[in-house]
């Protein structure tokens, strides 16, 4: 399977689609960074308005940590969408170009072949998250420096610089599980529908519905606590003053379970279906 994974990575790195996707993600990051800077002051004014009556502020909150946090906060639609397109394309392009048939004529395991596609989707998603994290931090910290981070989650939570950095890094890692989940789902959807355009539409639909349902509280225990749509903003729990680690671990473990489940479904569909 190692050779299959290497082959998939090789193909991914040689396709223009990959670099278009990376460029799109970096451009979006740049736009978010610029808007974060201009909006940052306004946001801080609103958040700190009441405190301003009783306090002077020493130090600035409009710093690199805030910029990185705002980038982090706004990426959970655009980033999964682009990654879903790339991940679905790993399968649909081969199906359309019939290289899938050509591959299946070689003496390789069908199961290993499709699992290697899933693994490459996961690896690519992780690489993109790391790239995003490193680039946003490099640009933000070099332009805006560091300092305290303020986050509003019902209360104003202030974090000192070192702690803010740790939490942000953990948030990116935690959020990467969400991104990986969506990437895996898109591969499964691609295996199911096979057609490139339909796969993109269905993947986007899945993402939109997940984002909409995230904000809905039905008051039903299994939905509010265990359904996968509710697990996708677990990273935000890292910005409560006291981090509820057990809740975070539980949510992430559950999300990984859902990810594996979707992968399993995709593998089963692929194995049972005729290639052509």
């Amino acid at each position: 399977m190692k050779t299959l994974i290497q082959a998939e990575l090789y193909k991914l790195m040689h396709q223009r689609m990959t670099y278009f996707a990376l460029a799109a993600i970096l451009v979006i990051e740049g736009i978010v960074l610029v808007s974060a800077y201009f909006q940052g002051s306004a946001i801080l004014d609103i958040l700190l308005d009441n405190l301003r009556e009783s306090f002077y502020f020493q130090g600035t909150l409009l710093n690199g940590h805030l910029m990185v946090y705002l980038i982090l906060n706004s990426l959970w639609f655009h980033l999964p969408l682009i990654l879903m397109i790339v991940s679905a394309g790993l399968f649909t392009t081969e199906h359309k170009e019939r290289t899938l048939q050509m591959m299946m004529q070689q003496p390789i395991s069908k199961t290993h072949f499709i699992i290697s596609k899933y693994l490459v989707a996961v690896v690519f998603s992780l690489v993109v998250i790391v790239l995003l994290m490193v680039s946003s931090m490099m640009i933000s910290y070099s332009l805006f420096g560091t300092g305290d981070l303020v986050v509003y989650l019902g209360t104003l939570n202030f974090f000192q610089s070192a702690e803010a950095f740790e939490r942000i890094v953990l948030a990116y890692l935690c959020g990467s599980l969400t991104v990986i989940f969506f990437s895996v789902v898109s591969v499964t959807l691609a295996i199911w529908v096979r057609d490139t355009t339909i796969a993109w539409i269905v993947s986007a639909f899945f993402l939109i519905i997940s984002n909409l349902l995230l904000k809905v509280d039905l008051g039903i225990d299994w939905f509010d606590n265990y359904f996968f749509v509710k697990l996708n903003d677990t990273w935000q729990l890292l910005f409560n003053t006291e981090i509820d680690w057990s809740h975070i671990y539980f949510n992430n473990a559950l999300l990984v379970t859902y990810t594996v489940l979707f992968m399993f479904i995709g593998v089963m569909i692929f194995r049972r279906r005729d290639v052509a």
Binding site: T3, R16, M102
Partner: peptide
């Protein structure tokens, strides 16, 4: 129709298909 990865050269295609099997 014959299928190969059209973004790779002939040599790269053969190398790729050789490596997986």
């Amino acid at each position: 129709k014959p299928a190969a990865y059209d973004y790779l050269s002939a040599r790269q295609n053969l190398r790729l298909f050789s490596s997986v099997q």
